[in-house]
């Protein structure tokens, strides 16, 4: 159980290891507060959808699996949206469109497909919490770097000295890509992971969902990174270099 929880935080961290959910990771990490808000919202949706999907896993016919998951996830996202709009309007404004885009966040649909649809409710809930916390921590780390060096503050509190020497580009879009790149490189170096790991459907659990293991796709455009597409995330982390 505890191991199940921890895997989402370290070994299978959705952002830094599985390279999922890059859009919100880059977009909302301009401040630590936003990152926390996003992480909490995604965790709530993940928890809710994992529990419901796991509970309904025997009822949902295979054919309408994906549409059903999407509806359930979209339902939870809308609930979270409305609750945040009502009780934390500032955060709601700051996250903007990315709040509703949790619907298409690969982490959520990926966990539903890979884990919740095959496991018991309790396990799915633990898995959701682990992944959610892992997502939140990754956002938190990234936002801390960007906010401290980009705005000279942390959680909105000004840091003396640093606030006089800010690097504003870090809180803009180029800085997002840059910090994320550096962060992954650090993770690579620390874990001594075999590098050369690439982005693409290989690391994305929704590859199976979105049709990436459809034969035509592999043969045509995805030839270059089709290796391992359709595999679950559990066995992709050590994909070999070229």
């Amino acid at each position: 159980m505890w191991k199940n929880f921890l895997k989402g935080i370290i070994r299978e961290n959705p952002v830094l290891v599985l390279l999922l959910g890059t859009c919100p990771t880059l977009a909302v990490t301009t401040s630590v507060a936003n990152a926390f808000g996003m992480g909490a919202a995604a965790t709530a949706v993940l928890l809710g959808s994992n529990i419901v999907i796991s509970a309904l896993r025997r009822m949902i016919p295979d054919k309408v699996r994906i549409p059903s998951y999407i509806v359930i996830i979209a339902g939870f996202v809308t609930v979270v949206e409305m609750v945040m709009h009502a009780f934390v309007p500032d955060l709601y404004e700051a996250l903007g469109v990315f709040l509703s885009l949790i619907v298409v966040n690969c982490i959520i649909l990926g966990r539903a497909e890979v884990y919740a649809s095959k496991n018991r409710v309790l396990d799915s809930a633990v898995d959701a919490l682990g992944m959610g916390v892992g997502f939140t921590l990754a956002l938190f780390a990234m936002a801390s770097i960007r906010e401290i060096f980009g705005s000279g503050s942390w959680m909105g509190f000004e840091i003396p000295i640093l606030s006089d020497f800010t690097i504003p580009i870090l809180v803009n879009s180029p800085g997002g890509f840059f910090v994320f790149g550096i962060l992954i490189a650090i993770v690579n170096a620390v874990t001594k992971r075999k590098t050369g790991r690439d982005f693409g459907c290989a690391g994305c659990p929704s590859a199976a969902v979105c049709g990436a293991n459809d034969g035509s796709l592999q043969n045509a455009a995805h030839k270059d990174h089709a290796a391992g597409s359709g595999k679950g995330p559990d066995d992709t982390a050590e994909e070999g270099g070229k």
Binding site: P61, V64, V71, G75
Partner: peptide
């Protein structure tokens, strides 16, 4: 069809 419609309806009512 029944399950999908059911899910849609339940979600809509909850929302």
């Amino acid at each position: 069809i029944v399950v999908l419609t059911g899910i849609c309806l339940i979600v809509a009512v909850l929302l």
